[in-house]
Write a protein that binds this DNA or RNA. Sequence first.
RNA 1: CGGGGCGUGGCUCAGCCUGGUAGAGCACCUGGUUCGGGACCAGGGGGUCGGAGGUUCAAAUCCUCUCGCCCCGACCA
Length: 625
Amino acid sequence: MRQSQAFIPTLKEDPADAELISHKLMVRAGMLRKLAAGIYTILPLGWRVTRKVAQIVREEMDRAGCQELLLPILMPAELWKETGRWEKYGKELFRQKDRHDREYVLGPTHEEAITDLVRNHIRSYRDLPLNLYQIQTKFRDEIRPRFGVMRAREFLMKDGYSFHTDEAQLAEAYDRMREAYAAVFRRCGLEFVIVEADSGAIGGDVNHEFMVTADSGESLIFSSQCGYAATSESAKFKIASLAAEPVAALETRSTPSRKTVEEVASFLSVEPARLLKSLVFFAGDEAILAVIPGDRELNEAKLSRVLGHPAPRLATGEEIERLTGGPLGFTGPVGLTGKLRTILDVCIQEGRNFVTGGNARDVHLVNVRVERDIPAVERADLATAREGDLCPRCGDRMRLGRGIEVGHIFKLGLKYSQAMGARYLDAEGTERIIVMGTYGIGITRTVAAVIEQLHDANGIVWPHSIAPYHVHIVPVNMNHDPTREAAEALYARLVASGVEVILDDRDERPGAKFKDADLIGVPLRVTIGEKGLKDGYSFHTDEAQLAEAYDRMREAYAAVFRRCGLEFVIVEADSGAIGGDVNHEFMVTAQTSRQDFASDRANSCGLSFQRICGEAFTPPGWNFR
RNA sequence: CGGGGCGUGGCUCAGCCUGGUAGAGCACCUGGUUCGGGACCAGGGGGUCGGAGGUUCAAAUCCUCUCGCCCCGACCA
């Protein structure tokens, strides 16, 4: 590509409406423009990257035995009414009517469409398993679209659905998908964790999210050394068990107008953890008393799961008074267990003396013993984990971090197949319901996540795998004939070799070109200028000359990576698509599993590389992977 | 939906409080000089200030409504 003819509108300044680094850089690098809130045009440069991510997804899916298809974006409402999601999905669902006033939805996800297809064509266990996927634009009318393409209303997504005879078959596909997903994100150069997640309204129990670690992420993630990782909505935790305390008699205390945990704790001179926080919820018509330690937050996602209700709501002051006999702020489980379904958080220990509300105005109880005063109470995990809590598996301290959700895999079970009547006949001739799984990757979001992780002060730093171009030729001055000729010759050579190359043939000042190149972030930059040419490096007409230059470049490159503080080895490599015989790769020795990425990273030391190139012109035939 | 903020040329923003009929930088066009980190000189084109209504002799500026956008919250596959 010749930059003089390319549509890459770069911007010198940050767009006013962007907050996230990835959003700013995508707009500034000429990849993205906004059309309306949460609706974006992906420009040529952005589309090249997006397509590469999609292609990686495609390759990994196909390798895992999946088949790509194209589903309609528009779906009749009837299908959604069958599964109940027409009502349940809420306002996020884009609804639409045609000229005959028939109702349609713009697909936010495609379980209905695919299940309809499968129920019409799959009859036998011999047809299973089946794993289909689509890469398409999806629509979700987000209440608050934000962060550019990170949380858009219209976005590109890969959605996959698998169909099985039984749970065992599903489990096999699920594990394979998990591996395939890990491969996709690894190839994109991302650092990520796989976390246990809340299944939300989709239902089903087993599910995992793929989280790209980034401070700008919207999700909170707990993780521990043993590999346990979970979102804040589902993270389990242990706390150190405390020594039993001597039994003391239950007493009432007057706590005038002390309602909050802080007020009561300081009034009675005890730690907030000494208190039990009692919250009254309604799940439909059923009232529930949820009791958690005073120093913790209730996790509504956990409560929702325990109750099997999508959205429990907090009771009002009047309701609390009617149910407990005491005003808001003085509620406690003692004496209520028979009257009100009471659930005690699992981390509340027996053998300790707690403070609770007394279910009467200005009264709290002290020396409350779980085993004596709240006997035989229902127990469940209700409290939200926090930093420093102990891992439920290995008992080590958990770390708290942030992540961007780029993928989510679910074992769906029978939810959709049952509702829509997707059945098959087993070997005995018995009709059974198809077992399903679903697997999604936010393609456009993944692009943003990569930028979020891989950028520097001057712009994007693409990993080789999804870079819009692999080589950026920057002639310093197009009006200097030798420079122009050298650049053109190298360009022609690389194009002929099938290298994805962009040539900055614009009649711009060098500074402007460098800034744009920094922004766009092509992994390899070849700067061609008068200085370099004068130093005697040029195109090599014979092997001897080339060999000499090659060795010098090898040294120069080694110097670059040394100066970057990287440990690396130089290995003989396959010449691949570029052709030629002799070539070497510089591999950074990485201790993690991110080997592929590490080499890309080394690959991407564009700034230092460029300085070297100012003094030594890159010989053609040279190959960097 | 609640709270806050913003809409002025392609971009970033000033002007608004204290009404007097629109400005800067960048970008763009022409000519020239320049050319290894967002050049310089000269000349030039482009906006009626998101929209509607109102107050006023006069509105970008004040008032009302409305639309759009951003942030925080609530919500959420």
